[in-house]
């Protein structure tokens, strides 16, 4: 088994065993979308594509937030307790560690986001009788755009948590979340398809997500062992 798989599987296992993170994730994944679903159902009429677009607009920031929630356990906890120093002495490169951890964080974060999407879609469908989950662009959004953005969120936040001190991380966590949300809204506005579900908007979002993953990988490659060690509290 490759070291990437070893690290990713371990992070997934730990994420699924972390009760506090799972509870936080579940509350946010279910409470927020269900409340939003009532607003969507009331404001969007019964056009399926409009309803699906509203769901897509909510689910993407939730995916980003899930990436942040699960990152805290994988990257920040190991830095706080010093375990990262031992891991840096293994034959795995720092980028290799980051890749495994980011992937291991992204999978449960994505699954939690899918649960959120399913709950939201089911609630909206129940309230409007519109078969939103059968909307092809929403399925594409959930299957392609959301995982890329979850991975970008986990990767960027993870790289920042490796490179920054504890205090900076507390501040920058929220900056990242709001930065992502702002970026999503801005991309939807400037995309040729405009806000809502369209092929062009989804293509722009997918491309931007891939660019963010590449940016995260580039940043992780620039972080040095020394930087990580000197920011251990």
């Amino acid at each position: 088994m490759s070291t990437f798989s070893v690290i990713a599987r371990r992070e997934m296992r730990l994420a699924f065993r972390n009760r506090s993170v799972l509870i936080t994730g579940f509350i946010f994944a279910i409470w927020f979308p269900v409340v939003s679903a009532f607003g969507i159902a009331a404001g969007a009429g019964e056009e399926t594509v409009v309803l699906a677009g509203s769901i897509a607009a909510i689910i993407l920031p939730i995916g980003v937030f899930m990436g942040y929630v699960f990152c805290a356990d994988a990257f920040l906890r190991e830095k706080r307790d010093g375990t990262i120093e031992t891991l840096l002495c293994t034959p795995v490169s720092l980028r290799g560690l980051w890749e495994g951890k980011a992937a291991g964080v992204a999978v449960p974060a994505y699954l939690m986001t899918l649960i959120s999407a399913a709950v939201t879609a089911a609630t909206v469908s129940a309230l409007t009788d519109a078969p939103v989950i059968a909307e092809p662009l929403l399925l594409f959004h959930l299957a392609a755009v959301v995982p890329v953005w979850v991975a970008a969120s986990a990767g960027l936040i993870g790289a920042a948590q490796l490179a920054l001190g504890m205090r900076e991380n507390q501040i920058l966590g929220f900056v990242f979340i709001f930065g992502f949300i702002f970026l999503i809204i801005a991309l939807q506005e400037v995309a040729p398809g405009g806000p809502g579900l369209s092929v062009m908007t989804e293509a722009v979002l997918a491309a931007a997500g891939i660019a963010l993953v590449a940016l995260a990988r580039f940043i992780a490659g620039k972080v040095t062992r020394e930087r990580v060690v000197l920011t251990i509290p």
Binding site: L14, T83, T86
Partner: peptide, 21 residues
């Protein structure tokens, strides 16, 4: 030298273990 690190072991004050495993 990643390969050389495979020939070295280390125990810091923190044991490098996860409490949840």
């Amino acid at each position: 030298d990643d390969d050389a690190r495979a020939r070295v072991g280390v125990l810091f004050e923190n044991n490098g273990l996860s409490d949840r495993m």
